[in-house]
């Protein structure tokens, strides 16, 4: 085998070198960061707020907990967690992308949430925290952009405290054929056009649609979490499986 032959991965429907994916994903999010929240509301008709509410409802988070909101972007989950963990807890908003972190920090500061939030630029595959550090890790709409998902899941497992839980909120496979077709039409025809009109960037939203299709389905992701060491792994389909919330524990 040629030693120089590079390992490849998916970037939407394209096949790219593993070493290139992170920077390509970074470019996408640098491009959309400023309009990220507006586009989220527009593209999901505001339903992303309900998906995130379900994540918080399933988190079991309470006062004093240490929470890592991975790929936390503009800080929707962090804002709620910050209130729920109180002054004795701590929330780390982590993202690989500096532009997203900047938007998130500004938004949370404007909400008056400053005392218990740290902002860390980090790669999910090599989380810069000691073993057994967090009671809860969430990654919402971020895992599909990670190059080596198995490595990222193992890294999350390492830094979770025993008894802690991981919540993965991510686009998934619709349960019904009719919904799936309507969703495909929406994703590949309307979504890039909306991206072009609002954020002046159709390519990033084309990548979004493609990356969703390349992401593992519900059962595959569940198996991946189990392989990484998580126990009592379950998932809950939201909006007919367009999004799934996976949950796993470390004991």
């Amino acid at each position: 085998m040629n030693e120089n032959q590079e390992k490849t991965t998916h970037f939407g429907y394209k096949t790219v070198a593993e070493t290139e994916k992170a920077s390509m994903v970074a470019d996408v999010f640098h491009s959309v960061a400023a309009k990220y929240d507006v586009m989220n509301d527009l593209m999901s008709f505001g339903i992303h707020r309900l998906w995130k509410r379900q994540t918080i409802a399933s988190s079991g988070v309470r006062k004093g907990h240490h929470v890592l909101d991975l790929a936390g972007g503009t800080g929707d989950l962090t804002a709620k967690f910050s209130q729920l963990v109180g002054d004795t807890g701590q929330v780390v908003l982590g993202d690989i992308n500096s532009s997203m972190l900047k938007v998130g920090r500004e938004k949370l500061h404007n909400l008056g949430l400053v005392s218990n939030i740290d902002y860390v630029q980090m790669n999910a595959e090599a989380l810069p925290f000691p073993d057994n550090s967090f009671d809860l890790i969430t990654i919402a709409f971020g895992l599909r952009n990670v190059t080596d998902k198995d490595k990222a899941l193992r890294s999350m497992y390492r830094i979770l405290k025993p008894g802690g839980r991981l919540l993965v909120l991510e686009f998934s496979k619709p349960e019904h054929e009719v919904l799936s077709k309507a969703y495909d039409f929406y994703s590949f025809n309307l979504l890039p056009k909306m991206g072009e009109l609002v954020a002046n960037d159709s390519e990033s939203y084309k990548y979004l649609a493609e990356s969703i299709r390349m992401h593992p389905d519900q059962d595959t992701l569940k198996s991946m979490m189990e392989d990484a060491g998580f126990e009592q792994t379950t998932y809950q389909n939201l909006t007919g499986g367009i999004v799934a919330l996976h949950r796993g524990f470390k004991y």
Partner: peptide
Amino acid sequence: TEQHLHLYSTN
């Protein structure tokens, strides 16, 4: 929590 009420449907 301090200034907010949080209400969730949960299991």
